[in-house]
């Protein structure tokens, strides 16, 4: 007798459960507030005449997106991945999920989807607040290209998905939440470092595409670099997720 349980349903249930767990923890409820402070702090700094940080208010949504995509959100992704994979195994909580009627594949994909959903929520907060701050700074709504801004934020989900997959892989390899977090950060730093050290081959590292959105915000869309970036990110995501699934599947708890 064989009875298959649909994978999509399992992933959906795992994602919902993981998001519930994430938001049940105080630190992850606090992060969106911290993230919301970033545009406000930038606005205050920009208003001070002796401030070192100066930017043109109409570019604030992109300035913030750049900071978020390269520093803030990868850090959050590593933190979440460390908690949901290595941390749960360390604390024995993974056993609870693994003995529920979901496959390991669904469990791993559901966790990564939950991480990405949380990051997407943070991006929405940043985008809305950056627009508010831009308007408060005196920029007319008509001067802002809303479509480009929304497109840029949406497109940034792609490099963030690759970062989440890498962080999940690092955390799956680690023994504890702390080492999972550190390993995730080290992996991203090393990839960035390699790209800096070897500029001729830097385009093969997915970390180079955090600024993929720049291809769509100019006067014209730069299709060739955009498509190369999308292809490389999708390829990296596939490789990283497959490797992570294989490692996760082989882990004995």
């Amino acid at each position: 007798m064989s009875r298959q349980v649909p994978l999509s349903g399992m992933i959906k249930r795992v994602t919902a459960a993981e998001l519930y767990k994430i938001f049940a923890q105080f630190k992850y409820r606090l992060i969106p507030f911290g993230m919301a402070l970033v545009p406000i702090i930038l606005l205050l700094l920009n208003q001070r005449s002796n401030s070192l940080i100066r930017f043109s208010p109409e570019n604030l949504p992109y300035t913030l997106l750049s900071i978020a995509a390269t520093i803030l959100l990868p850090l959050v992704a590593c933190m979440l991945a460390a908690d949901l994979f290595a941390g749960e195994r360390e604390r024995g909580e993974l056993k609870i999920s693994l003995t529920r009627p979901v496959s390991r594949t669904a469990l791993a994909i559901g966790k990564i989807t939950a991480i990405l959903t949380y990051l997407a929520g943070l991006l929405v907060i940043l985008m809305v607040l950056s627009l508010v701050v831009t308007i408060v700074s005196g920029v007319a709504i008509g001067q802002l290209n809303g479509l480009h801004i929304v497109g840029a934020y949406l497109l940034t989900l792609l490099p963030l998905a690759a970062v989440s997959a890498a962080a999940a892989l690092a955390s799956t390899l680690a023994r504890s939440a702390t080492s999972g977090f550190v390993l995730g950060i080290v992996l991203l730093v090393v990839l960035n470092g390699l790209a800096l050290a070897f500029p001729s081959i830097s385009s093969v590292f997915f970390t180079e595409y955090a600024g993929l959105y720049k291809n769509i915000v100019g006067a014209e869309v730069s299709w060739t670099p955009l498509l190369i970036g999308v292809g490389l990110l999708l390829g990296s995501m596939t490789v990283l997720t497959t490797t992570q699934l294989l490692v996760f599947d082989a882990k004995e708890v």
Binding site: S2, R3, V5, E93, K95, T99, R100, S103
Partner: peptide, 30 residues
């Protein structure tokens, strides 16, 4: 288990199986 093989039909088996293995790691913040 229930005529099914865990390596192939684990989710279907676990739909009708209750487990408590070693000291369980419950979610302390819930």
């Amino acid at each position: 288990l229930f005529g099914m093989n865990p390596s192939e039909d684990l989710p279907a088996i676990l739909e009708q199986t209750g487990c408590m293995i070693e000291m369980p790691g419950l979610y302390p913040y819930l």
